Computed example of a mutant assay.
Amino acid sequence: MEVPRGGPTGGDDELAGQWASRHDAESGRCAALLDICTTMPAGVLERLLGISPAAADRWAAGAAYAAEVAHRSDG
């Protein structure tokens, strides 16, 4: 059974558990991608991920900004 992207529906605990598991996995993938974007040049992102040069530049800039904001909130 497919769990809706917006979250579990109804009160079914099994569906809620499946949604939470998928949400955790998605969060982990997003964190890993953000880490890659902050540590690699845009040209490497472009070739590694198969994205356009413009997209790689945007992702790298967005990741750098996110890292700066996170650093500010740490301290």
Rank of each mutant, 00 (worst) to 15 (best):
A16D: 05
D13K: 04
S21H: 03
A66L: 15
A64F: 01
A54Q: 14
S73Q: 11
G10D: 04
H23E: 15
C37I: 03
E68P: 00
D57P: 00
A61P: 08
D57Q: 13
A66Y: 06
S73V: 09
P4H: 04
S73L: 12
V44T: 13
L45D: 10
A55C: 06
V69H: 02
A42L: 11
P41T: 11
A70S: 11
A25M: 02
C37E: 04
G11N: 15
A63W: 07
D24E: 13
G28H: 12
L49G: 06
E2W: 06
A64T: 09
L34A: 13
W19Q: 02
C30P: 00
Q18I: 10
A32G: 01
W59L: 15
G6P: 07
S52H: 06
G62L: 04
S52F: 04
R22T: 02
S21V: 02
P53M: 02
E14W: 08
A20E: 14
A56R: 02
A63T: 04
G62S: 07
A66D: 12
A54M: 10
A31Q: 12
R72S: 09
W59N: 07
L33M: 12
P8W: 03
R5D: 10
V44L: 10
L15K: 04
L34K: 04
E2M: 08
A54N: 10
L45S: 12
I51Y: 01
E14H: 08
A31N: 07
V69C: 03
A31H: 04
V44N: 06
M1R: 05
R29T: 14
L48R: 10
P4R: 01
A64Q: 07
I51M: 10
A60L: 01
A55E: 14
D13Q: 08
P41C: 09
G11R: 15
S52E: 09
G7L: 07
R47Q: 14
Q18V: 11
G62V: 01
A32T: 14
S21P: 00
G10C: 03
R5L: 11
R47F: 06
G43S: 07
I36M: 15
M40S: 10
G6N: 10
P8R: 09
A66P: 00
S21C: 02
Y65T: 11
D24H: 09
G62T: 02
V3K: 10
P4M: 00
G10F: 03
H23S: 13
D12C: 12
A16C: 03
A56Q: 05
R47V: 12
Q18R: 15
A54F: 01
C30I: 10
A66I: 06
E68K: 04
M40H: 11
G28E: 15
R58L: 08
I51Q: 08
D74A: 13
M40K: 13
P41V: 13
V44A: 14
T9P: 01
Q18H: 08
A56G: 08
S27M: 09
R58T: 05
C37H: 00
A67F: 05
W19I: 01
W59I: 12
A42I: 08
C30A: 11
L49V: 08
L48D: 10
M1E: 06
G62R: 05
A66C: 04
A25G: 01
G10I: 03
A32R: 13
L33R: 09
